[in-house]
Design a protein around this nucleic acid. Structure first.
Length: 1026
RNA sequence: GGGCGUAUAGCUCAGCGGUAGAGCACUUCGUUGACAUCGAAGGGGUCACAGGUUCGAUCCCUGUUACGCCCACCA
């Protein structure tokens, strides 16, 4: 291809006029782009440039707008849920950044105590080692190594997705600064009496060997049995038959409870029973909790291994009797025969022994729900252990001081009920409020090695001292310290540090060793953040706890008061809005899970993956051969050619388009492919526009000096034209300019349509309706800009005079450039790539489209007159197309076209659009005319546009029968519509009560339908004559 | 037991007190000068069911049915 230096006109704003020297091929007088959009080629290019430019960080100017990234597990990989969420966040951040806000997307990762420790433990296990072989220090060192190794995986995946996080501020929950925040919060809550340590019954995961919080327990329904067991009375007598689902806990029973008003057992209350197999004796007690009608009406009480029993034991002063080790093995508190047995072994043995003793009365099937640890699938064993808790429930402090009334919980509740934090969709508010109202104390200690070690020390007498360090703990010691101090072995629940994320990432606590005074002063403007985007599954784990911690700590001064900015609860919230996104499921609506083998990897959608790789990936972690086979079969069927690469933009657009306010979205690859097509459509629209930017439509034959000079001369003329026009038109080219330089109707119409689409887009983004926002732009680009405007532009570009062409070129560019900016938050890569080509044509400076402002609807004049005109034109063109299609006339065949009926407006419009009609509908200009009054109308196929009749004469082209049938069918349909309207209008109540405009509308409809029918009847009559 | 949600085209989903919509799929035609990752033209719906409010209900209210999620659970 031969290139030559050509000057292109350029204006921005219109009054200015600069000349750019561009390289452009002469062959078509414009810029060329690749024929189709190739995501791979462009995506790798832009992200590094964006990141390097520092453009993702806050500018310090404008109203602050912050989004906190829910920190993913540091050693995790990106899944579809992340990708969805992050698309939404990036959309919002890029949108607000372009809208002039001082934006921060705060990123980072979570140390994810249990999950990460488990991974490293598994790695050790593969080498035949346990963490105990290494010891605590070496093990933790090992986890840090793994964190360093894999920690960047997910960040890099997020970059692939285009996430515009300010990476320079990336944080990790075990960073020094964040750890300082953790210690400070723990210590302050402890000193305020809001954290306590105690021996309590907790949910114990015997596989991990740690307590977990109630939220980390899942209840799974299972078929089990209900066994009835006789506890004979001491000294003979039948005693009591109890019903239980866990017979092995009999070994730890301390009583049997009956309802106080249960006549069957009244005489036994206070007496002693023989506890089978143990030789122990236990009392019969009375308690309201017992349901007379369930089982036998008598309950065995095992306070050490059941939450309800524990509560009852406390009411009755019964000493709990633990019968399991922390590994859930029967311990020395049980008879020797059972010691050393695992829980489920012990159950079998106990049942067998009861049977043998004749004490097992009945076994019947029973549905029950079993508590399972989310992390390990191990059956949770309630276990009596020393743990740390955050007090969320008590009305007063432990020492009886007033003012402790739900000091953490109540503000968190008020923040939402008083509307300082708003849930979107709103109904999640009820979930939040209900949970917080019925909350239990939060068990925050974990018997793990990876995490924030609890800043508490024990002396040799077991007294507790809390502080930043052992020295600090000593300094704050209330009582005497007996001997040496030893730090608590436990670490904190991962969610404890997550709860602090809204302010620990902003330099809080200020002035600590790790955080400078200045950092918090600078960054607290991002508190509260604008919106939290997260899944409903962590409303309790994370959202509620952030509200708790932030309402308590934000802006708290050393003396306990709040600084001015944070004095009000309304300002002490972590975020204003909580956007709860839907859960991503597969196309069939199944939850995606590795064990089902139906997960999709977002990176595989972006980059594509072969069938064999996909099969391998999806089945390699599946251990059961049958499942493996099934999964492989499904994948081979569903993705016979693997997954084609759709690119990050198409994936993002898909997520945006699926982001309704429902609670699940089914991810369908087909949808994704459709949006890839959309990207290609946009690409090709740009390609068309740029191809037509040349100063001349005619190819320049040779790049000779003469030709070049001539071209430059023409250029100068055009530049002058622009200047003149701009001077006349004023700054806004879309204001109605003087007639000599007036934009054409199609131009006015597309600008107007852009204005409407822009308004819709902004409104929907503001409402967090990203599906509708995306749809507004999709519709505009495809159905207005491409389908109609590019077509309407073609006649002007091909046949217009210099001024018309220039005007059309500018409008093509300007609308394209605006729509690229609107789309940029959704599809950043392709819009950047195209914009880089488009911007110089408009003389726009700036390194990146992201630095351009977001278009506002007010920039685009709404133009009802132009819109009506173009709608008329569309109707005429559609009419011709329909006739062609129905009559099977080749699209390229030039046709005659006749007009009849209609009024002056139709005549004017027909004249105005004559060039467009002949060009686009491929009408022979010689044979396009109005029928004179007394012209004999030829047999023709007709299309009604209001009162105007558009006719394609038969001349051997038309299938007469088909046309008659079509007319008859259409007439019947319209008559039906008229009947409906008439039905309404004949109802006196309707006419009396309906709003006048509705009544008018019905009358108008009848009139319109009647006109159309009349025209069609006439046409049908003519056909039958012919 | 408590709370929340869903039911609209073959599929996935928008929608709204007054003409029922999109994408995909389907049918027919088409390689026309941005795009076959495309274009043009079509077919397809008792808006789950029953009552109520209203001039008018797919939409609001009540109930029923079906499905789903969360929380709490009687051993």
């Amino acid at each position: 291809m031969t290139y030559v230096r050509v000057r292109y006109p350029s204006t921005e704003p219109l009054l200015a006029c600069s000349c750019l020297i561009l390289r452009a091929p002469l062959c078509d007088g414009g810029i060329t782009m690749e024929k189709s959009f190739d995501p791979k080629a462009i995506e790798s290019r832009w992200y590094p440039q964006w990141e390097a430019s520092g453009h993702f960080g806050p500018t310090g100017a404008g109203e602050p707008y912050c989004i906190l990234l829910p920190p993913p597990n540091v050693t995790g990989t990106l899944h579809m849920g992340h990708a969805f969420q992050q698309t939404v966040m990036d959309l919002l951040i890029r949108y607000q950044r372009m809208s002039g806000r001082d934006t921060l997307w705060q990123g980072g990762t979570d140390h994810a105590g249990i999950a990460t420790q488990k991974i490293v433990e598994n790695q050790l296990a593969a080498q035949g080692k346990t963490k105990h072989d290494l010891g605590r220090a070496a093990f933790v060192e090992r986890v840090w190594e793994w964190k360093q190794e894999s920690g960047s995986t997910i960040s890099n995946q997020m970059r692939r997705l285009g996430a515009s996080i300010d990476w320079s501020r990336e944080r990790f929950t075990m960073d020094e600064g964040l750890s300082a925040a953790v210690r400070k919060v723990f210590i302050e809550w402890y000193r305020a009496g809001l954290i306590y340590r105690g021996k309590r019954l907790v949910h114990w995961d015997p596989v991990l060997g740690t307590a977990v919080s109630d939220l980390e327990v899942e209840n799974v329904d299972k078929d089990g049995s209900l066994w009835s067991i006789r506890y004979p009375s001491v000294g003979g007598g039948d005693g009591v038959v109890v019903a239980t689902t866990r017979p092995e806990t009999l070994l730890g029973d301390v009583a049997v409870a009956v309802h106080p008003e249960d006549e069957r057992y009244a005489h036994l209350i206070g007496t002693l029973l023989e506890l089978p197999l143990t030789g122990r004796q236990i009392p019969v007690i009375a308690d309201d909790y017992v349901d007379k009608d369930f089982g036998t009406g008598a309950v065995k009480i095992t306070p050490a291994h059941d939450f309800n029993d524990f509560a009852m034991g406390q009411r009755h002063g019964l000493e709990p009797r633990s019968i399991f080790t922390l590994g859930a093995i029967v311990n020395e508190n049980a008879p020797a025969a059972y010691q050393g047995l695992d829980r489920f072994e012990a159950r079998k043995r106990v049942l067998a022994d009861l049977e043998a003793a004749g004490l097992l009365i009945e076994t019947k099937p029973h549905k029950l729900s079993i508590p399972i640890s989310q992390r390990t699938d191990a059956v949770i064993e309630p276990m009596l252990t020393d743990q740390w808790f955050v007090d969320l429930t008590r009305d007063e402090l432990p020492d009886g001081r007033p003012g402790g009334k739900r000091a953490i919980t109540d503000p968190a509740l008020a923040a939402v009920t008083e509307g300082h934090v708003r849930f979107v969709p709103e109904n999640w508010k009820a979930t939040y409020v209900q949970w917080l109202t019925n909350i239990q104390d939060w068990c925050i200690s974990r018997q793990l090695w990876w995490g924030h070690r609890i800043p508490a020390w024990f002396d040799e007498a077991g007294n507790i001292f809390v502080g930043e360090s052992d020295a600090d703990a000593r300094a704050h010691a209330q009582g005497e310290i007996v001997g040496a101090l030893r730090q608590d072995e436990d670490v904190l629940d991962t969610w404890f540090s997550s709860a602090l994320w809204p302010f620990s990432t902003m330099g809080w606590p200020e002035g600590s060793e790790q955080n400078s005074q200045a950092e918090w002063a600078r960054d607290q403007r991002f508190l509260p953040s604008a919106v939290l985007v997260t899944g409903f599954d962590i409303i309790f784990f994370w959202v509620a706890r952030m509200v708790m911690a932030t309402t308590y700590f934000a802006g708290r001064q050393a003396d306990g008061s709040f600084d001015r900015k944070f004095a009000k609860l309304a300002d002490r919230v972590p975020f204003r809005d909580v956007y709860i996104n839907a859960i991503v499921r597969d196309a069939e609506g199944q939850k995606m899970s590795k064990s089902k083998g139906n997960t999709l990897d977002p990176l595989d959608l972006i980059d594509g993956i072969t069938l064999e790789e996909l099969v391998h990936k999806s089945t390699s972690s599946l251990l059961i051969p049958q499942v493996r086979e099934k999964v492989e079969k499904r994948i081979r069927k569903e993705y016979p050619a693997g997954i084609q690469a759709v690119g990050a933009d198409a994936l993002r657009f898909t997520f945006a388009a699926l982001a309704t306010h429902g609670r699940t979205i089914n991810f369908d690859l087909k949808r994704c492919e459709g949006y890839k097509n959309f990207c290609n459509k946009l690409w090709n629209a740009a390609r068309f526009v740029l191809q037509n930017m040349g100063v001349t439509a005619e190819p320049v034959e040779a790049p000779g000096a003469a030709a070049l000079d001539a071209a430059l001369e023409r250029m100068d003329a055009h530049i002058q034209a622009i200047q003149e026009r701009a001077a006349l038109a004023g700054l806004n080219r879309f204001d109605a300019p003087p007639a000599a330089v007036a934009p054409s109707l199609p131009e006015r119409w597309i600008v107007s349509a852009l204005g409407i689409a822009t308004a819709e887009y902004h409104a929907q983004v503001a409402a967090y309706r990203f599906d509708l926002a995306a749809q507004a732009l999709y519709d505009f680009v495809w159905n207005e800009y491409c389908d109609w405007f590019l077509e309407l532009a073609k006649p002007a570009l091909a046949n217009g005079n210099a001024t018309e062409r220039l005007a059309m070129q500018r409008t093509l560019l300007e609308v394209l450039e605006a729509v690229l900016r609107l789309l940029h938050p959704i599809i950043p890569f392709i819009t950047e790539e195209i914009w880089q080509q488009v911007a110089p044509q408009l003389g726009l400076g700036g390194k990146s489209i992201g630095e351009r402002p977001m278009p506002q609807a007010s920039e685009f004049a709404i133009d009802p007159a132009a819109t009506a005109d173009i709608e008329w034109l569309k109707a005429v063109l559609s009419g011709v197309r329909r006739i062609r299609s129905e009559q099977n006339i080749a699209p390229g065949k030039p046709l005659p076209l006749l007009f009849t009926g209609g009024g002056m407006a139709d005549i004017e419009r027909q004249q105005r659009h004559a060039a467009a009609i002949t060009f686009i509908a491929r009408i022979d200009p010689e044979r396009m005319r109005w029928l004179e009054k007394d012209d004999a109308a030829p047999a023709a196929a007709a299309s009604m546009v209001g009162e105007l009749k558009v006719l394609i004469p038969l001349a051997g082209l038309i299938d007469l029968k088909a046309e008659q049938q079509r007319l008859a069918k259409e007439i019947t349909r319209l008559e039906g519509e008229i009947k409906k309207c008439e039905g309404k209008l004949s109802n006196a109540n309707f006419v009396a009560n309906a709003p006048p405009e509705v009544v008018l509308q019905e009358r108008q409809r009848i009139a319109d339908f009647s006109t159309t029918i009349a025209g069609m009847r006439e046409q049908a009559g003519r056909l039958s004559e012919g």
